[in-house]
Design a protein around this nucleic acid. Structure first.
Length: 1014
RNA sequence: GCUGAAGUGGUGGAAUUGGUAGACACGUUGGACUUAAAAUCCAAUGUCCAUUAGGACGUACGGGUUCAAGUCCCGUCUUCAGUACCA
């Protein structure tokens, strides 16, 4: 009986599929357990070995829980809307649905061959109409809701309308747009339908508004904040501009506080929670209003006018309000044009223009340079009534707070630098602090002075008092500010969910949920229209007939009952924000999931996925869950109890080093002699790159021989080598890791023939470590190595298909786990897989040899039992701590020990199989059935640990002298402290170590160690 | 700058509460088997000194606590990740 892993794995994968072994039921006697993976976007490149890491870990856990008697839900699906399929469609004309379906097929094949215990009957695809029906449905629910600050939850818009009709909006405490008009019930009832709709839109949880968005010209679409990294797009690194557009937004800011508080209740990693906290960015302080003084040109004296402009600022330090010596507005602030004096206009305009020209990136890269301009205007200090100059400066961001700050140079580094740069006076309001060198911002040590009613107070007291005084004069109040911005929800793309929205007189209308889904229309091409509309503008059948309640041809729009549909589509995160709920009841045509299903499954017990989604998916999905909870749709307001971030598996790239240029310079005066464009590509090795002598050899043996240099130059260089400085520039070029063996040796001939690299290497000269030219098969060229992210462009991608066919899925699973801790980043090295592969072969040999099964009914020995129970204990602990790498080691030790013990006992080998089954399910199933069992091993009870088998009668004590271990001594466990001490001191080795001296002290820790202090 | 995580052989990594540092593998070297190769098996493998016996050093660096420190405390350096003029 041979371990034919390919045959065994195919057999059991077929068995699991045919018997629906891992199908979860929505009610059961067993306790429930929900293990979720972040579903993949099915890219055209397929899976590489890095992708399944988290899936393997979650699969082990799911299988373990089944052994432990749980009803396990372990689903998988596809986040199948997205940019790459659309980019591909633009290039080839191929419908993204076709590309996506093909990619999913590849993914499914690859996932199946790794032997996951997914319940595929629950598969979801976000691009399926039967799925996005519910994405659209949730959108409608959001549109029909507003956030009531009094109840701290979302409520139906109809309640808001009722309040408006009966008492206006003065008493409504809602999260809504900033500049909302105040109206009475009478006002409201007198308004036209359009006006009412406009006002309601300012309250809805998803709303249409002209907002400044991140526009990416390359993709022709807007991007969310979390899709931008360092001022460029996360995908592809394309530039991003600020642009004003009318877009759908999600009022996630309404949930800022609850998103923050909710973090306390869930078991997610600290770093991830910290990321979300930073992203939410709560700061507590006050808003303060400053009245702008009217400018009297004939007099330097200034005084307020009747209806002055008001500059609102947010500050975390209201206690320093007496230290304000100027104000700074963001250059984009709307008041700038209104308050700038004629004399300052040209300067201010020039500054605004200069700032607008600077890209976001420049602005971020250059934070040190201080720049700004004086508007000529003054504002009045709320307490001292002194005039305060109003400046603009780009260190104040339009997007944060109110886009304006009260500048307190004595207490803020940036204000300090700004004041110094422009010679603005600095007022010191801190007792006993020298601010001649820098600002003082230590809240804890603050004692306020020179500040009227705040004198002598500490930070806490002064803050409270300042807010109280501001409230008294109606020029401020306590306020909490969040960095979290509302999320733009429109994308100018084709391959996304269509909105269930049509427009009447410019106002958005929801299609009744009964008519969902609104299917994505067909278009001729996937690019924006000539008039700059999104791709859906190309659809000819894309209008809503309000009588027939169906999508009809655009040319009917002139009918009074047919209206234009929304042309934007939803962003990538829409579909992924509730999929974990849909898995609970994925085929339900009437509800997102039935109440019974959601009440049964409740929430995800274990969620595994990448940390790159910290401020995107993992925040948006928590937001939607809280909203759905408010609406009574879902039973819990946090959907994932525990979340683990798997680390990335990195690729080990292979490099060759190409000579780009050779420069010669005189050693004497540095004057250049020239440089050579090389006729042939020359590839040197990592070592020769830094070896000066090789250059000489290079010229002698290679360049001259290949006529790369003319004779004169050759003589010149080689003959007078010492007189010339030779500078060589190299390029490090990625080559395919497939052509490199375990010893880093490159298959040069294969590389030459690879058309993917063009003609680059066909005639290239390869030079080895010692400067020798690589000719035959005996010469060795070693590549350079570097650990990088796995990516196609770096030619370092390792495909799991090859690993599975060469070593088997069980080897792949074990090896991915064996590589290191789950959360850690670690490099992939295919060569190492032989270790786990030979472990599986050894495991097999424990059960069977050429003559067949060798398992017997022999009574297990004490050693057998000890090995087994020690393994049960360790593996169980490891799985529960998600320390999968150490359990693989434990299995290896167990198999090595049982092999040495020549164990054939059924009572040992059967439980061992169950232990290994979550990790290596195929081999376990096969041996389990060879042992004569019917059906799958997957639900067999996990072996019970019996501590009595681990009780030792003696201990091999390490004997230390002054903390240094010298030798060991076997002593009975039941010896008393004194007996141990006596026994150790009596030992001749002890006497030898002491050399006649008497020990000062002897430390005996029974069962652990003996330390003799001399 | 701030926040978080980490730093252990040639490599990936082990090491419960402070208690034999380097488990388990990879790689390397030597050996067995073989006509040969593959596969398999055995042995060695932190560094340095020593023929051996044995010894010294050793968990980024410098201190400290302790009978005993990879683990605890103080300081420094480095790397990775996130974030950044957040008022």
């Amino acid at each position: 009986m041979k371990y034919d892993f390919n045959k065994i794995e195919a057999k059991w994968q077929k068995y699991w599929a045919e018997n629906q072994t891992f199908k979860a039921v929505n009610n059961s006697e067993k306790p429930k357990y929900y293990v979720l993976d972040m579903f993949p976007y099915p890219s055209g490149a397929g899976l590489h070995v890095g992708h399944p890491l988290g899936y393997i870990a979650s699969d082990i856990y799911a299988r373990y829980k089944r052994h432990k008697g749980f009803n396990v839900l372990h689903p998988q699906g596809y986040d199948s809307f997205g940019l790459p399929a659309e980019q591909y469609a633009i290039q080839t004309g191929q419908h993204p649905a076709i590309t996506t379906a093909e990619n999913i097929k590849t993914y499914r094949r690859q996932l199946d061959q790794i032997g996951f215990s997914f319940d595929w009957s629950r598969e979801v695809r976000t691009s399926d109409a039967s799925y996005y029906k519910w994405t659209q449905w949730i959108f409608i629910q959001l549109f029909n809701s507003w956030f009531n600050n009094d109840t701290n939850k979302a409520e139906d818009v109809s309640t808001l309308e009722a309040v408006f009709a009966s008492e206006g909006n003065t008493n409504v405490n809602a999260v809504c747009d900033d500049n909302i008009e105040v109206f009475s019930a009478k006002d409201w009832n007198a308004k036209s339908s359009e006006d009412k709709q406009k006002i309601l839109l300012q309250y809805r949880l998803t709303y249409l508004a002209e907002t400044e968005v991140n526009w990416c010209p390359f993709f022709g679409t807007v991007l969310a904040n979390d899709e931008i990294v360092n001022g460029v797009s996360e995908r592809g690194g394309h530039p991003v501009l600020r642009k004003k557009m009318t877009q759908w937004s999600m009022r996630i800011s309404a949930y800022a506080e609850r998103l923050l508080q909710g973090l306390e209740t869930i078991d997610w990693t600290d770093s991830l929670k910290e990321s979300q906290r930073n992203w939410i960015g709560k700061s507590v302080g006050a808003s303060v209003s400053f009245n702008v003084l009217a400018n009297n040109e004939n007099d330097s004296h200034v005084e307020p006018v009747e209806a002055p402009h008001v500059i609102d600022v947010f500050t975390t330090r209201p206690d320093t309000v007496f230290g304000v010596s100027f104000m700074t507005l963001a250059p984009e602030h709307e008041l700038v044009s209104k308050i700038t004096t004629p004399e300052q206009k040209s300067e201010v305009d020039a500054y605004i223009l200069a700032t607008a020209k600077r890209s976001e990136r420049d602005r971020m890269a250059d934070v040190k340079t201080i720049s700004g301009a004086f508007t000529g205007a003054y504002a009045e200090h709320p307490f001292t009534k002194e005039p305060i100059p109003v400046w603009i400066g780009d260190y104040v961001l339009a997007g944060y707070g109110t886009g304006a700050v009260m500048s307190v140079p004595c207490g803020d580094e940036r204000d300090y630098a700004f004041a110094n740069h422009f010679n603005i006076p600095i007022i010191n309001i801190f007792d006993g602090v020298d601010i001649s060198e820098s600002a003082f911002s230590d809240k804890d040590k603050t004692v306020i002075g020179n500040s009227d009613f705040l004198n002598g107070m500490n930070y806490k007291k002064a803050t409270k008092r300042a807010i109280y005084e501001l409230e008294q004069i109606g020029q401020g109040e306590g306020k909490t500010n969040y960095r979290l911005r509302d999320a733009v929800f429109s994308r100018q793309r084709y391959w996304g969910e269509p909105f269930p929205v049509y427009y009447v007189k410019g106002m958005p209308q929801m299609i009744d949920a009964a008519h969902l889904p609104i299917n994505l229309p067909e278009v001729e091409k996937y690019l924006p229209t000539e008039t700059g509309e999104p791709p859906l503008g190309n659809a000819t059948v894309w209008a809503w007939d309000t009588e027939k309640n169906e999508v009809v041809s655009n040319d009917k729009i002139n009918d009074t009952t047919v209206f234009a549909l929304e042309l934007n589509t939803m962003p990538g995160w829409a579909g992924s924000s509730f999929y974990f709920n849909r898995y609970m009841d994925p085929e339900n045509p009437n509800e997102m999931a039935s109440k019974e299903a959601m009440d049964y499954w409740q929430d995800v017990d274990l969620y595994i996925g990448g940390s790159e989604h910290a401020t995107g998916h993992l925040l948006y999905s928590r937001f939607w869950q809280k909203f759905l909870f408010d609406k009574g749709v879902v039973p819990v307001d946090e959907y994932a109890k525990k979340l683990i971030n798997q680390g990335m598996i990195l690729g080990t790239s292979a490099f060759v080093y190409r000579i780009d240029k050779i420069n010669f310079k005189s050693e004497k005066d540095g004057s250049p002699f020239g440089w050579y464009e090389l006729e042939k590509t020359i590839i040197v090795s990592k070592e020769t790159r830094s070896n000066k002598d090789f250059i000489k050899e290079l010229f002698k043996e290679t360049l001259a021989a290949n006529n790369s240099l003319d004779k004169k130059s050759y003589d010149y260089v080689v003959g007078n080598y010492d007189e010339y400085k030779v500078n060589i520039t190299f390029s490090s070029l990625h080559v395919k890791v497939d052509y490199v063996n375990a010893s880093d040796e490159l298959d040069v001939e294969a590389l030459r023939l690879d058309s993917e690299f063009g003609k680059e290497y066909v005639d290239a000269i390869f030079i080895g470590e010692k400067g020798e030219v690589i000719k035959g098969n005996n010469d060795v060229y070693k590549v350079g190595r570097e650990v990088e992210k796995m990516s196609k462009s770096k030619y370092n991608v390792v495909n799991p298909d090859n690993i599975v066919s060469d070593y088997g899925a069980d080897s792949l699973r074990l090896y991915e786990m064996f590589l290191g801790p789950l959360e850690q980043y670690k490099p992939w090295n295919t060569a190492g897989i032989t270790g786990v592969h030979s472990f599986l072969k050894k495991l097999w040999k424990l059960y069977a040899d050429d003559n067949g099964l060798k398992v017997t009914d022999a009574t297990p020995t004490k050693d057998n039992l000890k090995t087994l129970h020690k393994t049960i204990k360790k593996v169980q602990e490891d799985i529960e701590n998600f320390s999968f790498n150490t359990s693989v080691s434990t299995f290896m030790i167990a198999v090595n020990e049982l092999g040495a013990q020549k164990c054939t006992s059924k009572d040992i080998l059967e439980p061992l199989l169950i232990l290994i089954s979550p990790y290596a399910p195929h081999i376990s199933e096969e041996l389990w059935s060879q042992l004569g069992y019917e059906g799958s091993i997957s639900t067999v009870d996990f072996p019970t640990f019996d501590a009595s088998h681990l009780v030792e009668s003696s201990k091999n004590y390490p004997i230390s002298f002054n903390g240094k271990m010298r030798f060991t001594m076997e002593l009975p466990m039941d010896m008393s402290k004194d007996e141990i001490e006596a026994a150790v001191l009596a030992n001749e080795k002890t006497q030898e170590q002491l050399g006649g001296r008497t020990p000062k002290k002897v430390i005996v820790v029974p069962g652990k160690i003996v330390n003799i202090v001399g």
